[in-house]
Design a protein around this nucleic acid. Structure first.
Lengths: 135, 135
DNA sequence: GACTAATTGCGACTATTTCGCAACTGCCGA
DNA sequence: TCGGCAGTTGCGAAATAGTCGCAATTAGTC
């Protein structure tokens, strides 16, 4: 398992809980801490919710996962390697769609040129109505 | 004060609390429910937090205020007439800058053309580093 | 001025996330 | 291979944030 190196290389201890949290995030795509905990409990029922929160934070600090705010309030976590897309959150049906980062390329450029603002496209949710709800 | 007509015209009762909440939102620019409550309490100490929440919701339903998610978790409220700008939230210093909506015009157009997604620019926070923190 | 329905205040309650602390366990060095 | 230390976990308590039910109050109408 290459995971071992991955975590160890970041200076983290390799615990079963930590591996489970990381792989749960990877399998789920987008997930709230609650969902991650649920997923992890499927194979390791004793895991504590605090542990999930702490590991998400730890994994985020070393850059293996990242979180995004999708609107409601709670954060949503992603594996860092999947953060190659924007999130299109539908305000009506709540669905989360994806679009490639370069859809925003000129927007990002505008903000950089005009305001010196360096947009973090990966930590960025776009609100609106999805194609289905527009109708 | 034109406020009376404004609220009555929307079919709302004109209560002191409601006027205070609305004018607090207008004076504050961006504000969390907590900040609105604090502002209102300056002139009307007895007001209840629930009342603030309920009025923000009511005012939002009739279109006088709107909320945006600026990242952390809590919603931030604005007077509807001030929602003519994007929010540039700095992930480092936490400052909230503004940019005109049309900075995103072609981005919005891209999303509409390519994904049928109708972006709500007013309910939309952009994360990144402000000019000061980029340095 | 009186009636009705909307609104308020209050307290309880839920959900979400954080924290302290004792117990446990990976990992490093001998 | 063994031992010790620091990082990690589990657990319960505690902040935080927002919602809800209900009785009392009050704005708007006639």
């Amino acid at each position: 398992m290459a995971d071992k190196h991955e975590l160890r290389d970041k200076g983290l201890r390799l615990t079963p809980q930590r591996e489970l949290v990381l792989s749960a995030v990877r399998e789920l795509g987008h997930a709230t801490p609650e969902e991650v905990a649920e997923k992890v409990r499927a194979t390791h029922p004793g895991i504590n919710l605090s542990t999930v929160y702490r590991n998400l934070e730890t994994l985020e600090n070393v850059g293996l996962v990242q979180h995004t705010h999708l609107g409601h309030g709670g954060a949503t976590y992603h594996a860092a390697e999947e953060l190659t897309h924007l999130h299109l959150v539908c305000s009506d049906c709540g669905s989360v769609g994806d679009a490639p980062i370069n859809a925003a390329a000129n927007f990002v450029q505008n903000l950089a040129d005009d305001y010196g603002f360096k947009t973090d496209v990966t930590h960025f949710a776009v609100y609106g109505l999805c194609a289905a709800c527009v109708k």
